[in-house]
Design a protein around this nucleic acid. Structure first.
Lengths: 217, 217
DNA sequence: GTAAAATTCAAACGTTCGTTTGAAACAAAC
DNA sequence: GTTTGTTTCAAACGAACGTTTGAATTTTAC
């Protein structure tokens, strides 16, 4: 049990090093050394570095998105025709990710996922494609809950919320505010509640009366 | 005027390519080719690739932070002892950056800055150090405006706001919500107003009564 | 116009990268 | 025990990287 499959050890090492030093800055030699495997093992098990990267993401991403869809399905089935409560929708969206953060290895993955939004290249496209159904479903749910918001307003607010979420996942040092060395680290559950409170208030904010001629639906 | 200093052309090319392909993935050969300069020119003018990167940031970062401080100084001088209006504080913080986005070259820089938060390495540390005074000043201003918020609550909410802001700056394709091909691109001014509305509401959200025993000040 | 300084240039340096290879080691099947 | 298929290994490949060098070129100063 100390040494699982070479394939698994490679994925673990790659994920760890990707978080520590970034994907580009991590060489296959770093990965295989950390995994105590031969340099050629990556190309044997995955074919190439690119496919290793995709495998690192694929391992956790599909279950995560499936769970987000499942929770929304469940909520909408219970609710029938009535729109969901905003905080309930947000919690369904966020909970699977925050639960991943309980476990060290999945936590690394969440961190990697948070950073992905600001990555360049085709990798983002590929991951985003898998995320599109989740996005579409939750956006529709939010539209039903906040029908007074035009699609432009809602889109921007969702954009801001995604940013707050990604940043929370991506930046491990958490609270960047220094001051006294208090015990800042809250539980994941508590952090999620803070985020839900913040995002829900932002999403619910009254639309300011436009004083200029912007294209508002 | 078509060909400014080699030094300047190198900075422009590096900035452009950093945004397009990421810092690590951009080679000095890419930079010098794009700048129509010799490969050795980077090491001649800057010393090394690392110092080129720092120069790209230094060029715009210091004026930006200085302006943020200046605006806050001005507001606090006018207000005297009374705390600032929340939206006013946020606008002072955001306006210098959004104004940078009007110009194409500075806009690239803003994009680069937004992505920096999720970068690894010592570069972030170096940039963050320059940002610390701004952070301290604005955090104090927010504390005066929102005195009912404990430092932990406020810290997290600022964290979320920074995330929303960084994401807005970093992701150029802007609205990730597809649907109809409407004219989604608003003016920078309008986007800033959307962000201020969202962040102000999030910051002002009532603190939920804690049902569990979290460490709340 | 000439001397001095600053800049550009082509070429090469040593490293590190991702990938390939073919033999060795191991496992499973009969 | 031999055969077959899978996995590991050390070694090498060519390509691309950041950097250095020393001569050529341009700019500056007098």
């Amino acid at each position: 049990m100390n040494t699982p499959d070479t394939r698994e050890r490679l994925l673990d090492a790659a994920q760890k090093l990707f978080v520590e030093h970034g994907i580009d800055a991590t060489s296959l030699r770093n990965v295989t050394t950390d995994a105590e495997a031969n340099l050629a093992s990556v190309n044997y098990h995955f074919g190439s570095k690119d496919e290793l990267i995709q495998a690192v993401f694929a391992r956790h991403l599909e279950p995560l998105n499936k769970e987000r869809i499942r929770l929304l399905d469940e909520l909408e089935r219970e609710a029938g025709d009535t729109p969901l409560y905003l905080e309930t929708t947000l919690e369904a969206f966020l909970k699977p990710t925050f639960e991943m953060m309980q476990n060290q290895k999945s936590r690394e993955f969440v961190c990697l996922l948070g950073r992905l939004f600001t990555e360049s290249s085709e990798l983002k496209m590929l991951i985003m494609h898998q995320f599109q159904e989740v996005q579409k479903r939750y956006f529709a749910a939010l539209q039903r809950t906040l029908p007074h918001l035009g699609i432009i307003d809602l889109s921007w607010r969702v954009h801001f919320m995604i940013g707050a979420m990604a940043h929370t996942f991506a930046v491990p040092e958490k609270l960047s505010i220094p001051s006294s060395s208090e015990a800042y680290n809250l539980t994941e559950e508590s952090i999620m509640q803070h985020l839900i409170t913040f995002a829900a208030a932002g999403l619910r904010a009254p639309v300011p009366s436009q004083t200029n001629g912007d294209n508002q639906k």
